[in-house]
Write a protein that binds this DNA or RNA. Structure first.
Length: 546
RNA sequence: UGGGGUGUCGCCAAGUGGUAAGGCACCGGGUUUUGAUCUCGGCAUUCGCAGGUUCGAGUCCUGCCACCCCAGCCA
Protein backbone atom coordinates (compact mmCIF):
# COMPACT_ATOMS: atom_id res chain seq x y z
CA UNK A 1 0.00 0.00 0.00
CA UNK A 2 2.80 2.41 0.73
CA UNK A 3 4.44 3.17 -2.54
CA UNK A 4 7.88 4.66 -2.18
CA UNK A 5 7.82 8.04 -3.87
CA UNK A 6 10.56 8.75 -6.34
CA UNK A 7 12.38 11.90 -7.32
CA UNK A 8 12.60 12.98 -3.68
CA UNK A 9 15.77 12.69 -1.65
CA UNK A 10 16.03 9.70 0.64
CA UNK A 11 15.00 11.68 3.70
CA UNK A 12 11.86 13.10 2.13
CA UNK A 13 11.04 9.66 0.77
CA UNK A 14 11.25 8.21 4.22
CA UNK A 15 9.25 11.01 5.79
CA UNK A 16 6.61 10.58 3.12
CA UNK A 17 6.28 6.95 4.10
CA UNK A 18 6.36 7.71 7.81
CA UNK A 19 3.62 10.28 7.55
CA UNK A 20 1.16 8.28 5.52
CA UNK A 21 -0.65 7.57 8.75
CA UNK A 22 -0.93 11.29 9.33
CA UNK A 23 1.71 11.67 12.03
CA UNK A 24 2.94 15.25 12.22
CA UNK A 25 6.45 16.12 11.15
CA UNK A 26 8.54 17.91 13.73
CA UNK A 27 12.16 18.73 13.03
CA UNK A 28 14.77 20.91 14.61
CA UNK A 29 17.84 22.82 13.65
CA UNK A 30 20.23 22.47 16.59
CA UNK A 31 23.24 24.79 16.29
CA UNK A 32 25.83 25.17 19.00
CA UNK A 33 26.31 28.90 19.64
CA UNK A 34 30.07 28.74 19.30
CA UNK A 35 30.44 30.41 15.92
CA UNK A 36 28.52 31.90 13.05
CA UNK A 37 26.46 29.87 10.64
CA UNK A 38 27.90 28.98 7.26
CA UNK A 39 26.56 27.73 3.95
CA UNK A 40 26.83 24.16 5.24
CA UNK A 41 24.41 25.05 8.01
CA UNK A 42 22.17 26.59 5.38
CA UNK A 43 21.88 23.13 3.84
CA UNK A 44 20.70 21.76 7.17
CA UNK A 45 18.40 24.72 7.82
CA UNK A 46 16.80 24.40 4.40
CA UNK A 47 16.37 20.68 4.98
CA UNK A 48 14.88 20.87 8.47
CA UNK A 49 12.69 23.93 7.98
CA UNK A 50 11.94 22.93 4.41
CA UNK A 51 10.75 19.46 5.32
CA UNK A 52 8.59 20.88 8.11
CA UNK A 53 6.95 23.30 5.68
CA UNK A 54 6.44 20.71 3.00
CA UNK A 55 4.81 18.22 5.34
CA UNK A 56 2.78 20.75 7.27
CA UNK A 57 4.86 20.34 10.40
CA UNK A 58 6.99 22.49 12.65
CA UNK A 59 10.67 23.08 13.07
CA UNK A 60 12.39 24.12 16.28
CA UNK A 61 15.40 26.35 16.51
CA UNK A 62 17.18 24.72 19.42
CA UNK A 63 20.47 25.99 20.72
CA UNK A 64 22.72 23.17 21.73
CA UNK A 65 24.25 25.04 24.62
CA UNK A 66 25.76 22.27 26.72
CA UNK A 67 29.32 23.51 26.80
CA UNK A 68 29.55 26.98 28.34
CA UNK A 69 33.31 26.97 27.88
CA UNK A 70 32.88 27.44 24.15
CA UNK A 71 29.63 29.28 23.77
CA UNK A 72 28.62 32.90 23.66
CA UNK A 73 25.43 34.99 23.52
CA UNK A 74 26.91 36.93 20.65
CA UNK A 75 26.47 33.81 18.55
CA UNK A 76 22.98 32.97 19.69
CA UNK A 77 21.87 36.38 18.49
CA UNK A 78 23.79 36.15 15.21
CA UNK A 79 22.40 32.69 14.52
CA UNK A 80 18.81 33.81 15.02
CA UNK A 81 19.38 36.73 12.68
CA UNK A 82 20.87 34.43 10.05
CA UNK A 83 18.07 31.87 10.18
CA UNK A 84 15.50 34.64 9.93
CA UNK A 85 17.37 36.28 7.08
CA UNK A 86 17.43 32.96 5.25
CA UNK A 87 13.67 33.18 5.34
CA UNK A 88 12.67 30.70 8.00
CA UNK A 89 10.40 31.13 10.98
CA UNK A 90 10.54 29.05 14.13
CA UNK A 91 7.46 30.76 15.59
CA UNK A 92 7.39 30.07 19.32
CA UNK A 93 9.68 27.10 18.99
CA UNK A 94 12.90 28.73 20.12
CA UNK A 95 14.46 26.45 22.69
CA UNK A 96 17.77 25.65 24.30
CA UNK A 97 19.24 22.42 25.53
CA UNK A 98 19.71 24.34 28.77
CA UNK A 99 15.93 24.68 29.09
CA UNK A 100 15.98 20.95 29.87
CA UNK A 101 18.91 20.83 32.29
CA UNK A 102 16.73 19.89 35.24
CA UNK A 103 14.95 17.13 33.34
CA UNK A 104 18.23 15.91 31.98
CA UNK A 105 19.52 15.75 35.52
CA UNK A 106 16.51 13.78 36.73
CA UNK A 107 16.88 11.27 33.91
CA UNK A 108 20.52 10.90 34.84
CA UNK A 109 19.57 10.00 38.39
CA UNK A 110 17.17 7.51 36.86
CA UNK A 111 20.02 5.92 34.94
CA UNK A 112 22.08 5.70 38.12
CA UNK A 113 19.22 4.19 40.05
CA UNK A 114 18.68 1.53 37.43
CA UNK A 115 22.38 0.71 37.47
CA UNK A 116 22.94 2.10 33.98
CA UNK A 117 25.30 4.90 34.92
CA UNK A 118 28.08 5.44 37.40
CA UNK A 119 30.28 8.21 38.70
CA UNK A 120 33.88 7.75 37.66
CA UNK A 121 36.94 9.31 39.25
CA UNK A 122 39.39 8.46 36.49
CA UNK A 123 41.26 11.43 35.10
CA UNK A 124 40.84 12.30 31.45
CA UNK A 125 44.21 10.73 30.72
CA UNK A 126 43.40 7.56 32.60
CA UNK A 127 40.12 7.31 30.84
CA UNK A 128 41.79 7.61 27.48
CA UNK A 129 44.15 4.79 28.38
CA UNK A 130 41.31 2.61 29.57
CA UNK A 131 39.30 3.23 26.44
CA UNK A 132 41.51 0.96 24.37
CA UNK A 133 42.03 1.60 20.67
CA UNK A 134 40.22 0.92 17.43
CA UNK A 135 41.41 -2.67 17.55
CA UNK A 136 41.94 -3.24 21.29
CA UNK A 137 38.97 -3.35 23.64
CA UNK A 138 38.89 -1.03 26.63
CA UNK A 139 39.05 -2.04 30.26
CA UNK A 140 36.44 -1.33 32.90
CA UNK A 141 36.81 1.60 35.21
CA UNK A 142 37.52 0.65 38.83
CA UNK A 143 34.45 2.74 39.68
CA UNK A 144 32.17 0.74 37.43
CA UNK A 145 30.79 -1.44 40.20
CA UNK A 146 30.18 1.15 42.85
CA UNK A 147 26.83 0.86 44.50
CA UNK A 148 23.84 2.78 43.28
CA UNK A 149 23.79 4.63 46.59
CA UNK A 150 27.38 5.70 46.28
CA UNK A 151 26.89 6.79 42.68
CA UNK A 152 23.82 8.78 43.59
CA UNK A 153 25.59 10.40 46.49
CA UNK A 154 28.59 11.33 44.36
CA UNK A 155 26.44 12.63 41.52
CA UNK A 156 24.47 14.81 43.90
CA UNK A 157 27.72 16.07 45.35
CA UNK A 158 28.88 16.84 41.83
CA UNK A 159 25.79 18.91 41.29
CA UNK A 160 26.21 20.58 44.66
CA UNK A 161 29.60 21.85 43.60
CA UNK A 162 31.65 19.83 46.06
CA UNK A 163 34.24 18.76 43.49
CA UNK A 164 36.70 20.54 41.29
CA UNK A 165 36.56 20.45 37.51
CA UNK A 166 37.76 17.17 36.09
CA UNK A 167 37.64 15.18 39.28
CA UNK A 168 34.52 13.17 38.50
CA UNK A 169 32.29 12.44 35.57
CA UNK A 170 29.05 10.54 35.18
CA UNK A 171 29.39 7.68 32.73
CA UNK A 172 26.95 5.37 31.03
CA UNK A 173 27.54 1.72 31.85
CA UNK A 174 27.45 0.09 28.44
CA UNK A 175 30.33 -2.01 27.12
CA UNK A 176 34.04 -1.27 27.28
CA UNK A 177 34.65 -3.97 24.68
CA UNK A 178 32.27 -2.55 22.12
CA UNK A 179 33.77 -2.22 18.65
CA UNK A 180 32.01 1.14 18.59
CA UNK A 181 34.14 3.38 20.73
CA UNK A 182 31.20 5.63 21.49
CA UNK A 183 29.68 2.78 23.47
CA UNK A 184 32.68 2.28 25.76
CA UNK A 185 31.06 3.81 28.84
CA UNK A 186 30.76 7.31 27.42
CA UNK A 187 30.74 10.41 29.60
CA UNK A 188 27.28 11.82 30.31
CA UNK A 189 28.12 14.69 32.67
CA UNK A 190 31.25 16.63 33.47
CA UNK A 191 32.05 19.22 36.10
CA UNK A 192 32.58 22.76 34.83
CA UNK A 193 32.61 25.62 37.27
CA UNK A 194 31.79 28.05 34.51
CA UNK A 195 28.94 30.48 34.22
CA UNK A 196 26.53 29.56 31.46
CA UNK A 197 25.18 32.24 29.16
CA UNK A 198 21.59 31.32 30.04
CA UNK A 199 21.62 29.47 33.33
CA UNK A 200 24.32 31.55 34.96
CA UNK A 201 25.77 29.78 37.97
CA UNK A 202 22.84 27.47 38.57
CA UNK A 203 24.85 24.51 37.34
CA UNK A 204 28.41 23.36 37.70
CA UNK A 205 27.81 20.07 35.93
CA UNK A 206 26.94 20.04 32.28
CA UNK A 207 25.58 17.17 30.16
CA UNK A 208 27.43 16.06 27.06
CA UNK A 209 26.07 16.23 23.54
CA UNK A 210 25.40 12.52 23.23
CA UNK A 211 23.34 12.43 26.36
CA UNK A 212 21.58 15.73 25.78
CA UNK A 213 20.69 15.65 22.15
CA UNK A 214 18.56 12.55 22.08
CA UNK A 215 16.71 13.51 25.24
CA UNK A 216 15.92 16.99 23.91
CA UNK A 217 14.74 15.47 20.66
CA UNK A 218 12.44 13.17 22.57
CA UNK A 219 11.14 15.92 24.86
CA UNK A 220 10.29 18.04 21.84
CA UNK A 221 8.73 15.01 20.15
CA UNK A 222 10.95 15.42 17.15
CA UNK A 223 9.66 13.06 14.46
CA UNK A 224 12.87 12.95 12.45
CA UNK A 225 16.21 13.88 13.94
CA UNK A 226 18.35 14.85 10.98
CA UNK A 227 22.08 15.22 11.38
CA UNK A 228 25.30 14.83 9.47
CA UNK A 229 27.19 11.64 8.72
CA UNK A 230 29.82 11.89 11.42
CA UNK A 231 27.10 11.17 13.97
CA UNK A 232 26.23 7.85 12.43
CA UNK A 233 28.51 6.11 14.92
CA UNK A 234 26.67 7.88 17.71
CA UNK A 235 23.27 6.55 16.76
CA UNK A 236 23.60 3.42 18.92
CA UNK A 237 24.28 5.68 21.88
CA UNK A 238 21.37 7.97 20.95
CA UNK A 239 19.18 4.89 20.94
CA UNK A 240 20.68 3.45 24.12
CA UNK A 241 19.93 6.54 26.16
CA UNK A 242 16.33 6.72 24.99
CA UNK A 243 15.89 2.99 25.56
CA UNK A 244 17.12 3.28 29.11
CA UNK A 245 15.27 6.25 30.50
CA UNK A 246 11.61 6.50 31.27
CA UNK A 247 10.51 8.48 28.26
CA UNK A 248 8.14 6.99 25.78
CA UNK A 249 9.34 8.85 22.74
CA UNK A 250 12.11 7.73 20.44
CA UNK A 251 12.88 9.89 17.42
CA UNK A 252 14.81 8.20 14.63
CA UNK A 253 18.16 9.76 13.87
CA UNK A 254 18.80 10.01 10.12
CA UNK A 255 22.16 11.10 8.78
CA UNK A 256 23.06 12.91 5.56
CA UNK A 257 26.36 14.14 4.20
CA UNK A 258 27.71 17.57 4.95
CA UNK A 259 28.19 20.14 2.23
CA UNK A 260 31.62 20.54 0.73
CA UNK A 261 32.30 23.58 -1.44
CA UNK A 262 35.36 24.18 -3.57
CA UNK A 263 37.93 26.80 -2.58
CA UNK A 264 36.68 27.18 0.95
CA UNK A 265 36.45 25.41 4.28
CA UNK A 266 33.33 24.49 6.16
CA UNK A 267 34.50 23.72 9.65
CA UNK A 268 33.65 26.08 12.45
CA UNK A 269 37.02 25.37 13.97
CA UNK A 270 38.82 26.67 10.89
CA UNK A 271 36.45 29.56 10.33
CA UNK A 272 36.97 30.55 13.94
CA UNK A 273 40.69 30.39 13.39
CA UNK A 274 40.48 32.63 10.33
CA UNK A 275 38.66 35.19 12.43
CA UNK A 276 40.86 34.86 15.51
CA UNK A 277 44.09 35.07 13.60
CA UNK A 278 42.76 38.00 11.61
CA UNK A 279 43.30 36.26 8.32
CA UNK A 280 39.92 37.71 7.39
CA UNK A 281 38.28 40.88 8.65
CA UNK A 282 35.61 39.07 10.64
CA UNK A 283 32.78 36.57 10.47
CA UNK A 284 31.14 38.78 7.88
CA UNK A 285 34.18 39.16 5.67
CA UNK A 286 32.69 38.86 2.18
CA UNK A 287 35.14 36.07 1.37
CA UNK A 288 33.84 33.90 4.17
CA UNK A 289 31.39 31.07 3.44
CA UNK A 290 29.38 32.28 6.43
CA UNK A 291 25.81 33.46 6.02
CA UNK A 292 26.95 36.85 7.29
CA UNK A 293 29.84 36.95 4.81
CA UNK A 294 27.73 35.94 1.85
CA UNK A 295 25.08 38.45 2.82
CA UNK A 296 27.64 41.23 3.03
CA UNK A 297 29.02 40.19 -0.33
CA UNK A 298 25.58 40.71 -1.78
CA UNK A 299 24.28 37.17 -2.06
CA UNK A 300 20.59 37.03 -1.33
CA UNK A 301 18.74 34.45 0.72
CA UNK A 302 16.77 33.11 -2.22
CA UNK A 303 20.00 32.31 -4.07
CA UNK A 304 21.23 30.33 -1.08
CA UNK A 305 17.93 28.49 -0.83
CA UNK A 306 18.01 27.73 -4.54
CA UNK A 307 21.56 26.43 -4.18
CA UNK A 308 20.53 24.16 -1.31
CA UNK A 309 17.68 22.80 -3.42
CA UNK A 310 19.99 22.05 -6.30
CA UNK A 311 22.72 20.22 -4.40
CA UNK A 312 20.37 17.59 -3.07
CA UNK A 313 20.55 15.51 0.08
CA UNK A 314 22.33 12.16 0.08
CA UNK A 315 24.90 10.22 2.08
CA UNK A 316 27.62 10.65 -0.52
CA UNK A 317 30.69 12.72 0.28
CA UNK A 318 30.54 15.74 -1.97
CA UNK A 319 32.44 18.83 -2.96
CA UNK A 320 30.24 21.16 -4.96
CA UNK A 321 31.87 23.23 -7.65
CA UNK A 322 31.87 26.96 -7.00
CA UNK A 323 30.40 27.42 -10.47
CA UNK A 324 27.08 26.03 -9.27
CA UNK A 325 26.96 28.50 -6.41
CA UNK A 326 27.88 31.36 -8.72
CA UNK A 327 25.19 30.24 -11.14
CA UNK A 328 22.53 30.49 -8.42
CA UNK A 329 23.74 33.91 -7.34
CA UNK A 330 23.73 35.28 -10.89
CA UNK A 331 20.39 33.75 -11.73
CA UNK A 332 18.77 35.54 -8.82
CA UNK A 333 20.42 38.90 -9.46
CA UNK A 334 20.08 38.82 -13.24
CA UNK A 335 16.34 38.83 -12.85
CA UNK A 336 16.11 42.13 -11.03
CA UNK A 337 19.33 43.87 -10.10
CA UNK A 338 19.31 47.47 -11.33
CA UNK A 339 21.75 48.09 -14.16
CA UNK A 340 24.39 50.77 -13.77
CA UNK A 341 27.67 51.77 -15.32
CA UNK A 342 30.86 51.89 -13.38
CA UNK A 343 34.39 52.17 -14.72
CA UNK A 344 36.91 50.33 -12.57
CA UNK A 345 40.07 51.26 -14.40
CA UNK A 346 39.43 54.57 -16.17
CA UNK A 347 40.82 55.74 -19.48
CA UNK A 348 39.83 59.26 -20.50
CA UNK A 349 38.01 59.79 -23.77
CA UNK A 350 37.61 63.26 -25.27
CA UNK A 351 34.90 63.80 -27.83
CA UNK A 352 36.61 66.33 -30.02
CA UNK A 353 33.48 67.30 -31.90
CA UNK A 354 31.31 67.72 -28.81
CA UNK A 355 29.86 71.23 -28.57
CA UNK A 356 28.71 72.90 -25.42
CA UNK A 357 28.35 71.71 -21.85
CA UNK A 358 27.43 68.36 -20.39
CA UNK A 359 23.85 67.41 -20.93
CA UNK A 360 21.42 65.44 -18.81
CA UNK A 361 19.37 64.37 -21.74
CA UNK A 362 20.38 60.72 -21.79
CA UNK A 363 18.18 58.28 -19.99
CA UNK A 364 18.39 54.53 -19.69
CA UNK A 365 16.15 51.88 -18.15
CA UNK A 366 17.21 50.47 -14.83
CA UNK A 367 16.54 46.99 -16.13
CA UNK A 368 16.19 45.55 -19.63
CA UNK A 369 13.04 43.55 -18.88
CA UNK A 370 11.59 44.73 -15.58
CA UNK A 371 9.49 47.87 -15.27
CA UNK A 372 11.92 49.58 -12.97
CA UNK A 373 11.81 52.97 -14.68
CA UNK A 374 14.76 54.92 -15.97
CA UNK A 375 17.63 56.96 -14.70
CA UNK A 376 19.37 60.03 -16.09
CA UNK A 377 22.95 59.63 -17.20
CA UNK A 378 25.10 62.74 -17.54
CA UNK A 379 26.97 62.70 -20.83
CA UNK A 380 29.51 65.15 -22.19
CA UNK A 381 32.75 65.99 -23.87
CA UNK A 382 34.94 64.12 -21.40
CA UNK A 383 34.19 60.54 -20.46
CA UNK A 384 35.87 57.52 -19.01
CA UNK A 385 35.85 54.07 -20.47
CA UNK A 386 37.50 50.92 -19.16
CA UNK A 387 41.21 50.74 -19.96
CA UNK A 388 40.75 47.14 -21.00
CA UNK A 389 38.18 48.26 -23.58
CA UNK A 390 40.87 49.79 -25.74
CA UNK A 391 43.71 48.07 -27.58
CA UNK A 392 46.10 49.79 -29.96
CA UNK A 393 46.58 46.53 -31.78
CA UNK A 394 43.27 44.81 -32.28
CA UNK A 395 43.30 41.15 -31.26
CA UNK A 396 41.25 38.72 -33.39
CA UNK A 397 37.47 39.07 -32.90
CA UNK A 398 38.03 42.04 -30.61
CA UNK A 399 34.71 43.72 -29.93
CA UNK A 400 36.01 46.87 -28.31
CA UNK A 401 37.76 50.07 -29.27
CA UNK A 402 40.95 50.50 -31.24
CA UNK A 403 42.43 53.23 -33.42
CA UNK A 404 40.23 54.11 -36.37
CA UNK A 405 37.46 51.78 -35.17
CA UNK A 406 34.02 52.51 -33.83
CA UNK A 407 32.28 51.31 -30.74
CA UNK A 408 28.95 52.15 -29.17
CA UNK A 409 28.90 53.74 -25.77
CA UNK A 410 26.16 51.74 -24.16
CA UNK A 411 22.83 53.57 -24.08
CA UNK A 412 24.53 56.59 -25.69
CA UNK A 413 26.37 57.37 -28.91
CA UNK A 414 28.70 55.65 -31.30
CA UNK A 415 32.24 56.98 -31.21
CA UNK A 416 35.30 56.51 -33.37
CA UNK A 417 38.84 56.61 -32.04
CA UNK A 418 40.90 59.11 -34.01
CA UNK A 419 43.96 59.67 -31.91
CA UNK A 420 45.81 57.99 -29.06
CA UNK A 421 47.54 60.39 -26.66
CA UNK A 422 50.50 59.09 -24.65
CA UNK A 423 52.74 60.50 -21.99
CA UNK A 424 56.53 60.56 -21.96
CA UNK A 425 56.62 56.92 -20.83
CA UNK A 426 54.46 55.77 -23.67
CA UNK A 427 51.47 55.23 -21.40
CA UNK A 428 48.16 55.97 -23.00
CA UNK A 429 46.65 58.95 -21.19
CA UNK A 430 43.62 59.69 -23.30
CA UNK A 431 41.79 58.97 -26.49
CA UNK A 432 40.53 61.58 -28.89
CA UNK A 433 37.32 60.41 -30.48
CA UNK A 434 34.56 61.63 -32.72
CA UNK A 435 30.99 61.00 -31.70
CA UNK A 436 28.12 60.63 -34.12
CA UNK A 437 25.11 62.72 -33.07
CA UNK A 438 22.65 60.72 -35.23
CA UNK A 439 23.63 57.50 -33.47
CA UNK A 440 21.90 58.36 -30.22
CA UNK A 441 20.70 55.23 -28.48
CA UNK A 442 17.13 54.34 -29.30
CA UNK A 443 16.94 56.73 -32.26
CA UNK A 444 19.94 55.70 -34.28
CA UNK A 445 19.75 56.98 -37.84
CA UNK A 446 23.46 56.75 -38.49
CA UNK A 447 23.48 53.35 -40.12
CA UNK A 448 26.91 52.76 -38.60
CA UNK A 449 28.04 49.30 -37.56
CA UNK A 450 30.29 49.58 -34.53
CA UNK A 451 32.52 46.71 -33.43
CA UNK A 452 30.97 46.43 -30.03
CA UNK A 453 29.46 48.06 -27.01
CA UNK A 454 31.37 49.56 -24.15
CA UNK A 455 30.33 51.04 -20.80
CA UNK A 456 31.34 54.57 -19.81
CA UNK A 457 30.89 57.27 -17.20
CA UNK A 458 30.89 61.05 -17.51
CA UNK A 459 34.27 62.39 -16.40
CA UNK A 460 32.77 65.56 -15.01
CA UNK A 461 29.79 64.11 -13.22
CA UNK A 462 30.80 60.55 -12.49
CA UNK A 463 31.30 59.87 -8.79
CA UNK A 464 34.44 58.44 -7.25
CA UNK A 465 33.79 55.27 -5.34
CA UNK A 466 35.55 52.30 -3.84
CA UNK A 467 34.87 48.95 -5.40
CA UNK A 468 35.94 45.83 -3.55
CA UNK A 469 36.69 42.79 -5.64
CA UNK A 470 36.67 39.39 -4.01
CA UNK A 471 38.10 36.13 -5.23
CA UNK A 472 38.21 32.66 -3.70
CA UNK A 473 39.53 32.68 -0.17
CA UNK A 474 41.69 29.62 -0.81
CA UNK A 475 44.08 28.70 -3.59
CA UNK A 476 43.08 25.08 -4.03
CA UNK A 477 39.73 23.50 -4.73
CA UNK A 478 40.24 21.37 -1.64
CA UNK A 479 42.56 23.39 0.54
CA UNK A 480 45.14 21.63 2.66
CA UNK A 481 44.38 23.34 5.93
CA UNK A 482 47.32 22.02 7.92
CA UNK A 483 48.88 25.42 7.26
CA UNK A 484 45.88 27.71 7.04
CA UNK A 485 47.71 30.91 6.22
CA UNK A 486 49.67 29.24 3.44
CA UNK A 487 46.53 27.80 1.91
CA UNK A 488 44.93 31.22 1.54
CA UNK A 489 44.70 32.97 -1.80
CA UNK A 490 46.87 36.08 -1.46
CA UNK A 491 44.81 37.76 -4.18
CA UNK A 492 41.41 37.17 -2.67
CA UNK A 493 40.83 40.89 -2.20
CA UNK A 494 41.49 43.97 -4.30
CA UNK A 495 39.99 47.38 -4.06
CA UNK A 496 39.62 49.82 -6.85
CA UNK A 497 39.08 53.53 -7.00
CA UNK A 498 36.35 53.52 -9.57
CA UNK A 499 34.00 56.03 -11.14
CA UNK A 500 30.30 55.38 -11.17
CA UNK A 501 27.27 57.08 -12.63
CA UNK A 502 25.58 59.28 -10.02
CA UNK A 503 22.13 57.67 -10.10
CA UNK A 504 23.51 54.45 -8.65
CA UNK A 505 24.79 56.02 -5.47
CA UNK A 506 21.77 58.21 -4.83
CA UNK A 507 18.81 55.84 -4.63
CA UNK A 508 17.85 53.23 -2.09
CA UNK A 509 18.67 50.30 -4.32
CA UNK A 510 21.28 47.95 -2.90
CA UNK A 511 21.99 45.42 -5.62
CA UNK A 512 23.30 46.38 -9.03
CA UNK A 513 24.63 44.88 -12.14
CA UNK A 514 27.53 47.00 -13.27
CA UNK A 515 27.11 46.38 -16.96
CA UNK A 516 29.61 44.05 -18.57
CA UNK A 517 31.26 43.45 -15.19
CA UNK A 518 29.22 41.75 -12.57
CA UNK A 519 26.84 42.10 -9.67
CA UNK A 520 27.67 44.51 -6.90
CA UNK A 521 26.08 45.60 -3.67
CA UNK A 522 26.42 48.68 -1.52
CA UNK A 523 28.53 47.64 1.44
CA UNK A 524 26.29 47.37 4.47
CA UNK A 525 28.92 48.80 6.81
CA UNK A 526 30.95 51.31 4.87
CA UNK A 527 28.73 52.75 2.15
CA UNK A 528 27.68 56.38 2.32
CA UNK A 529 26.66 58.77 -0.43
CA UNK A 530 29.74 60.85 0.25
CA UNK A 531 31.99 57.80 0.20
CA UNK A 532 30.32 55.08 -1.84
CA UNK A 533 31.64 51.56 -1.34
CA UNK A 534 30.50 48.59 -3.39
CA UNK A 535 31.31 44.90 -3.02
CA UNK A 536 31.43 42.61 -5.98
CA UNK A 537 28.99 39.79 -5.33
CA UNK A 538 29.95 37.77 -8.39
CA UNK A 539 31.32 38.63 -11.80
CA UNK A 540 29.32 38.19 -14.96
CA UNK A 541 29.88 34.94 -16.75
CA UNK A 542 32.38 35.65 -19.49
CA UNK A 543 32.93 33.46 -22.47
CA UNK A 544 36.33 33.53 -24.06
CA UNK A 545 36.57 35.71 -27.18
CA UNK A 546 36.48 32.43 -29.12
C1' U B 1 44.68 -3.95 10.51
C1' G B 2 38.04 -3.11 14.92
C1' G B 3 33.42 -0.57 13.89
C1' G B 4 30.33 2.63 10.91
C1' G B 5 29.46 4.70 5.97
C1' U B 6 29.92 5.76 0.55
C1' G B 7 31.05 4.39 -4.65
C1' U B 8 25.98 6.24 -11.54
C1' C B 9 29.44 11.74 -16.99
C1' G B 10 34.46 16.92 -14.87
C1' C B 11 30.92 18.40 -10.16
C1' C B 12 26.17 17.27 -8.03
C1' A B 13 22.07 13.75 -8.66
C1' A B 14 17.50 10.64 -10.26
C1' G B 15 17.07 5.53 -10.80
C1' U B 16 13.75 0.94 -5.60
C1' G B 17 15.02 -6.11 -11.62
C1' G B 18 12.61 -4.25 -17.72
C1' U B 19 16.89 -1.92 -21.00
C1' A B 20 20.88 5.31 -17.88
C1' A B 21 16.09 11.72 -15.69
C1' G B 22 17.69 16.51 -14.54
C1' G B 23 21.02 20.60 -13.02
C1' C B 24 25.96 22.88 -13.10
C1' A B 25 30.31 22.78 -16.18
C1' C B 26 31.85 22.06 -21.10
C1' C B 27 31.30 22.22 -26.76
C1' G B 28 28.58 24.15 -31.16
C1' G B 29 24.25 27.27 -33.68
C1' G B 30 20.68 31.53 -33.22
C1' U B 31 19.01 36.35 -30.95
C1' U B 32 21.26 40.55 -28.58
C1' U B 33 23.14 48.41 -27.99
C1' U B 34 25.93 44.02 -21.61
C1' G B 35 31.66 38.99 -25.30
C1' A B 36 25.74 39.07 -20.10
C1' U B 37 20.78 37.29 -20.38
C1' C B 38 17.64 34.34 -23.52
C1' U B 39 17.27 30.33 -26.99
C1' C B 40 18.30 25.74 -29.88
C1' G B 41 21.42 21.44 -30.21
C1' G B 42 25.53 18.13 -28.46
C1' C B 43 27.54 15.76 -24.18
C1' A B 44 27.59 7.93 -19.77
C1' U B 45 26.39 1.37 -25.31
C1' U B 46 27.38 2.38 -19.39
C1' C B 47 26.68 2.64 -13.49
C1' G B 48 34.34 1.26 -8.54
C1' C B 49 36.27 -3.88 -10.25
C1' A B 50 35.56 -9.27 -11.01
C1' G B 51 32.46 -13.27 -11.00
C1' G B 52 27.39 -15.30 -10.35
C1' U B 53 21.66 -15.52 -10.39
C1' U B 54 17.94 -14.08 -14.19
C1' C B 55 14.71 -14.13 -20.55
C1' G B 56 16.56 -9.41 -18.62
C1' A B 57 21.04 -6.46 -13.41
C1' G B 58 23.02 0.39 -12.01
C1' U B 59 19.31 -2.26 -9.28
C1' C B 60 19.72 -9.29 -6.37
C1' C B 61 24.13 -12.65 -4.57
C1' U B 62 29.58 -13.47 -3.73
C1' G B 63 34.47 -11.71 -3.58
C1' C B 64 37.70 -7.82 -4.14
C1' C B 65 39.23 -2.44 -4.56
C1' A B 66 38.97 2.82 -3.37
C1' C B 67 37.50 6.83 -0.39
C1' C B 68 35.21 9.14 4.19
C1' C B 69 34.15 9.01 9.67
C1' C B 70 35.30 7.18 14.91
C1' A B 71 40.08 6.28 20.18
C1' G B 72 37.28 14.96 23.40
C1' C B 73 35.31 15.22 30.32
C1' C B 74 33.82 19.13 21.65
C1' A B 75 29.45 19.19 18.86
Amino acid sequence: MSETPTGLDFIRQRITRDTEAGTPVITRFPPEPNGCLHIGHAKSICLNFGVAQEFGGDCYLRFDDTNPAKEDVQFVEAIQADVKWLGFDWGDRLTHASDYFEQLYQFAEQLITSGKAFVCSLSADEMRENRGTLTIPGTNSPCRNQSVEQNLELFRAMRAGEFADGTYVLRAKIDMASPNINMRDPVLYRIRHISHQRTGNTWCIYPTYDYTHCVCDALEQISHSLCTLEFEDHRPLYDWVLDNINLNVHPPQIEFSRLGLEYTVMSKRLLNKLVDERLVTGWDDPRMPTIAGLRRRGVRACAIRDFCDRIGVTKQDNTIEMSLFDFCVRKDLEADAHRAMCVLDPLKVILTNWEGEDTDALTAPWHPRQEYGTRVMPFGKELYIERSDFEEVRPPKYKRLSPGEMVRLRMAFIIRCDEVIKDANGEITELHCTYFPESRSGQDKSGLKPKGVVHWVSAGQGIDCEVRLYENLFLERRPDTSDLAAALNPDSFHNKNAIIEPAAVQGQMLHFQFERQGYFVKDSEDFSESRPVFNRTVSLRELRPA
